[in-house]
Every structure is written in structure tokens, then in C-alpha cells.
Design a protein around this nucleic acid. Structure first.
Length: 398
DNA sequence: TATTCGTGGCA
DNA sequence: TTGCCAAGAAT
């Protein structure tokens, strides 16, 4: 509290942090230059994602889509494929939507205009500030988790940083700290400090360039701050997926489907799967690994449910593997079976690539997946799968 | 405002 | 092994 109104502590913080950053900053691919498009792409990828994870994706993405126009003109599935495994896939679709908007409204040039940038899809308060400051050196705050943690400690702020309102307050503080003409470097310095020194669990205070006037450190409270309410644990969901193996013209292929346009893993491809209702979980559990689908009851339930929900008449053959996957808010405990296609098989074979039109239309009406497709290993290079299914499919094909 | 959106690393 | 977390935005 004291330090907020302490101009000496503030001036010290800004100056020391900026000097420190210019001396030790990491050589990251998006720091090659200040091209607004490169900054923009990096900031989207870095949302809730670690630097080390982002780097290879960033290199590939910039290589494939070097300019706003290249991204705007690309087929969406290619963009999604380039994002495969990175998570939060709406980021990719929003980024491309933003690129198309920049082409249409700003001639393909990212505008040096806060309001215009803030209006782009997928660009929120943080990313707006990051682009404006890093690419254009405008004195805008870029308050992310790092900045909230660093400032909470340095100024001993006790507001809950999990609450949206807290960010607004910290933004005001952050703007007041920006050194004249050095917005980009200073904002990155804040984040660099949070990433390398003022880390969440055990901050390395001794090498910290601003330790002397850090209020939390002086109070011996650096590990207590920031205050952050913990998220609810993900709700468990038992699911059963099937690897349906093709016959005839589809020999060597399996059946996959594309997810709906919105929601979880939107527009990604996946194996067909079902949510196991709470009152059926015991039945599926009983169909253990050893005897394959030993419990005939489980097989019957699977066949009937898959028919009801997808129109696929399957014949479960044997258990293949179990797989756990934890999203931010859901925990999938998935059991995967190998299966053949039953009576409707001719229908799918005849269609070649997809099920009968009327069946597909029925899925649409129910908000279910619209497209099914027989694929071989080579098709994995085109379609974008979330990691949980990539692992299963690699297992299957190797 | 609270929830929904992925994934992997690490103690 | 489990829990926590990371350069957030959209709804």
C-alpha cells in the first residue's frame, strides 16, 4: 500500500527493471524485430501457454503464414492444422478472422490504433496493450498473470488476482510505471521478471533487480502473494471411444468425425465417442482389459448407444486402451475399443467418404457432429486432431 | 461475474 | 500421483 504512493519506489522500480531487461532479455523468435504481425501472432500463441511450448509452433506458423495477407488467404483447416496440439483452438480461428479483418479494413497493415487493434477478434485488454506497446511503443499497459504477480508483490497488493476487476486496478498502476518512450521494453521487462525471477512458487529474490524496495519481500510475504482463489477441480466424465476399422474399399482405414463449429475442441477431428451416463459407469468398468469386452452387457450398451447417438451400427471387438485427458474444466476418463461396422456398413461404404445425407442432417438438427470420414495414416497430415486423439491414433498405427 | 475454452511441465 | 500453473478472451 505504502509503495503505491511512494514515487521514489516507483521510479526506482521502472528504471532498474528496464535496465535489467535490456541486459538479460532472452533471444526469442518474436523479438527478432517489431513487426506488428509477428508480435500479434506471438501474443496470441503465448496466451496461457509457456514460451518453450510456443517456440516451435511460432517458427512453423510464421514460416507457413509469413504475412497478414498469407494468413488471411489460407484455408482455415490449414491454420488449425498448424495449431494442432497447442490447445485453445479458438485462438487460431480468431487470429485468422482478425487477419482477414486487417486485410479488408486496413489494407493488410496492422493499424497503429488502440481502438482498432482492440476490436480484432481474439484480442482482449492484455493483447491490445502488448501489441500497442511492443509493436508501436505506445504507453499502454499489458497486464497478464506475470504482471499481476510482480506488482502484487512489489506493492504488496492483496486483491484477488483471479477476479477480473483486479486487473483493471493493476492496469492503472502499470501505466503509471511506464518510463518515457520505453513502453515496449518495460512491459516485456515486467513479464520477463515474472517468468524468470519473480516466479509463482519460489521467487528468486536475491538476483531480483528490484528486491530492495519490494514491499512483499520487506514484509517477508513474497510467497504469500499474490492472493489468488483456486479454480474448481475439473469434473470427471467417463467416455467410451471406438476405433472403427474399415473393410472393402476402406480396408486399413478408420472412421473419424469432425467436432461442431463451437465449443470444446471446435472443428477438430476425433474418434467417435460417447458420454457414459452415471448409472452405466459400473457396467463399463466391469468390461475390464483382461477379457476384452467380457461383459456382454457393456458391449450391448455401447452398440445401442452408438446407434442412437450417431447412427453407426457397430460391433465391438475388443478393448484397445484406456486414456485420461484433463482439460481445464473437464476430466475425460476414456476407454477405447476396437470395433467393426455392422449392418449400416454398406451405407457408409457406398457413400465412400461420409454417411447418408439424411443421417448427417439428423446430426446437425441435434447439434451433433456433421461429418464422418474414413482415413488412413496419411490423412493425419491434413486433419487437425487434439492431442488426446493423436496419442491414441499413433498408438494404433504403430 | 463466473464459466468455458487445452496442454504439458514440474514439485 | 496430484495439484498448480502459463504472455487471456469470449460469453
Amino acid at each position: 500500500m505504502e509503495a503505491i504512493n511512494n514515487e521514489v519506489a516507483k521510479a526506482y522500480f521502472s528504471q532498474e527493471l528496464l535496465t535489467w531487461y535490456r541486459r538479460i532479455k532472452r533471444d526469442l523468435p518474436w523479438r527478432m524485430n517489431q513487426d506488428p504481425y509477428r508480435v500479434w501472432v506471438s501474443e496470441i500463441m503465448l496466451q496461457q501457454t509457456r514460451v518453450d511450448t510456443v517456440i516451435p509452433y511460432y517458427e512453423r506458423f510464421m514460416n507457413k503464414f509469413p504475412t497478414v495477407r498469407a494468413l488471411a488467404e489460407a484455408p482455415e483447416p490449414e491454420v488449425l492444422k498448424c495449431w494442432e496440439g497447442l490447445g485453445y483452438y479458438s485462438r487460431a480461428r480468431n487470429l485468422q478472422a482478425g487477419a482477414r479483418e486487417v486485410v479488408e479494413r486496413y489494407g493488410g497493415v496492422v493499424p497503429d490504433d488502440k481502438t482498432a487493434v482492440a476490436g480484432l477478434k481474439g484480442v482482449g485488454p492484455y493483447t491490445t496493450g502488448a501489441i500497442m506497446s511492443i509493436a508501436f511503443n505506445r504507453a499502454e499497459p499489458a497486464v497478464d498473470g506475470n504482471v499481476m504477480r510482480v506488482l502484487s508483490r512489489y506493492f504488496c497488493l492483496e486483491e484477488d488476482i483471479a477476479k477480473p476487476a483486479t486487473r483493471v486496478g493493476i492496469e492503472k498502476l502499470a501505466v503509471s510505471l511506464i518510463p518515457e518512450g520505453a513502453a515496449g521494453d518495460f512491459n516485456q521487462a515486467l513479464m520477463e521478471l515474472g517468468a524468470l525471477v519473480c516466479t509463482p512458487k519460489s521467487p528468486s529474490c536475491l538476483p531480483c533487480p528490484v528486491m530492495e524496495h519490494c514491499a512483499a519481500r520487506l514484509a517477508g510475504r513474497e510467497t504469500e502473494l499474490p492472493i489468488k482463489t483456486k479454480a474448481k477441480p475439473p469434473r470427471p466424465e467417463k467416455r467410451v471411444a471406438v476405433i472403427i476399422t474399415g473393410t472393402g474399399v476402406n480396408e486399413g482405414k478408420i472412421l473419424v468425425r469432425q467436432r461442431p463449429e463451437t465449443g470444446l475442441l471446435a472443428q477438430m477431428w476425433e474418434l467417435p465417442h460417447l458420454l457414459v451416463p452415471k448409472d452405466r459407469e459400473s457396467v463399463i468398468e466391469a468390461a475390464g482389459e483382461e477379457g476384452g469386452l467380457s461383459a456382454a452387457e457393456a458391449g450391448e450398451w455401447l452398440t445401442r448407444s452408438m446407434d442412437e447417438e450417431t447412427g453407426l451400427l457397430i460391433r465391438p471387438r475388443r478393448w484397445f486402451m484406456d486414456s485420461d485427458h484433463i482439460f481445464s474444466h473437464i476430466h475425460w476418463k476414456m476407454r477405447i475399443y476396437l470395433a467393426d461396422l455392422g449392418a449400416h456398413a454398406e451405407l457408409a461404404d457406398a457413400a465412400g467418404a461420409s454417411l447418408a445425407a439424411e443421417t448427417a442432417a439428423a446430426y446437425e438438427a441435434e447439434g451433433k457432429q456433421g461429418e464422418y470420414r474414413w482415413i488412413g495414416p496419411a490423412d493425419m497430415e491434413t486433419l487437425a486432431f487434439p492431442n488426446l486423439f493423436l496419442r491414441i491414433l499413433r498408438d494404433y498405427w504403430t
